[in-house]
């Protein structure tokens, strides 16, 4: 990674961290219903998505705030998903090439493979990347996705963030083997990277994306990472994991590591404080825009069920409209 890109990575990782912290605060204040924090996973998320080109398609799970920031996804629309305003998020998924976030764990790996197969059929050199946790690899859909990708040589990057936990279940209980090694079983390479090392993540993802673009098929990347917080704001992780583990992870903060790396290469303190100011401003803008944002009206629940609503459904919509009166 060149110096500029490394600084850009840091800037976006910091932004993601500050948004993440803000989302947890907003949840405590009742502005969001629940939120799954990703602090600790910034290097894995930001550096990987920066390795792709804007035409590539991202398939995120629910814990991909850092990927969204790296992609330039509208944060208000992103956060509104966690206010219960719209399932899947209210950002522009086509413009950002960032699919609605998947909450059914593991279900979206196949969508990425299908999208990649489609791009290949069209002869486009675009790549799909799908983000999922180590828990998701246990789902049958994940194995089916690996297999389809291998057989069809789909241009897809499987980006697994192994943060050690699937809610309370430790990674050892998801698999008796190593996740990255599964690639070989399906006929494509698997690699394991330190998910706290932005440069290593960027290198691995770039290599995987290039391979896919050359028509050589998928790669499985397992990024070893940590989530500092609970599974979500509704979870109490003190019930199942030792504080020492979290403290060790925090001492190895990917943000701190990249900062040290940049500082050693001569980036001055003033640059870091500017980045911090910029993040603070962005966070206060997000807070304001969320406060101002209105949820879609209730009757919109009818509007995207079919391309054209069948008459019985249109009738139900008008019944709800009538019940709600001017509030509809």
């Amino acid at each position: 990674m060149d110096a500029d890109r490394l600084r850009e990575t840091y800037r976006l990782m910091l932004l993601a961290r500050r948004y993440d912290e803000e989302a947890v605060r907003l949840q405590r204040q009742g502005e969001l219903v629940a939120f799954p924090p990703m602090s600790g996973q910034e290097a894995a998320q930001v550096a990987s998505v920066l390795a792709l080109s804007p035409a590539d398609m991202v398939f995120p799970s629910y814990r991909e705030l850092g990927v969204a920031v790296g992609r330039g996804v509208d944060m208000t629309g992103y956060m509104l998903a966690f206010r219960g305003a719209w399932n899947g998020g209210l950002y522009d998924c086509r413009r950002n090439r960032f699919a609605p976030m998947a909450s059914s764990v593991g279900s979206h790996l196949l969508h990425a493979v299908g999208w990649a197969m489609g791009a290949r059929l069209d002869g486009r050199d675009e790549v799909a990347i799908v983000y999922f946790g180590e828990g998701a690899t246990s789902e049958g859909d994940a194995s089916e996705a690996f297999n389809f990708a291998g057989v069809f040589r789909a241009p897809v990057v499987f980006f697994c963030q192994n943060n050690g936990w699937a809610i309370s279940v430790p990674a050892e209980r998801q698999s008796a083997g190593e996740i990255w090694r599964r690639g070989e079983a399906f006929g494509f390479p698997g690699v394991r990277v330190d998910g706290g090392d932005a440069e290593a993540v960027f290198a691995a993802t770039s290599a995987a994306a290039e391979r896919a673009r050359r028509g050589e098929g998928p790669t499985l990347i397992e990024a070893l990472t940590h989530r500092f917080g609970p599974h979500s704001t509704a979870d109490d992780d003190t019930r199942y994991r030792e504080r020492a583990e979290v403290e060790t992870a925090r001492r190895n903060d990917p943000l701190g590591r990249l900062r040290a790396r940049l500082a050693a290469s001569g980036v001055p303190d003033s640059w870091f404080s500017d980045a911090e100011d910029e993040a603070r401003l962005a966070v206060s803008e997000l807070r304001a825009s969320l406060a101002a944002a209105e949820n879609p009206p209730a009757v919109e629940m009818f509007d995207f069920v079919y391309a054209a609503p069948p008459p019985a459904l249109a009738l139900q919509r008008s019944q709800l409209e009538e019940l709600l009166g001017p509030d509809a």
Binding site: G84, A85, P296, V305, L313
Partner: peptide
Amino acid sequence: GWDVPYPSGAVE
């Protein structure tokens, strides 16, 4: 319930 996918929490 209406003949729609279960809606998001804010309007359930």
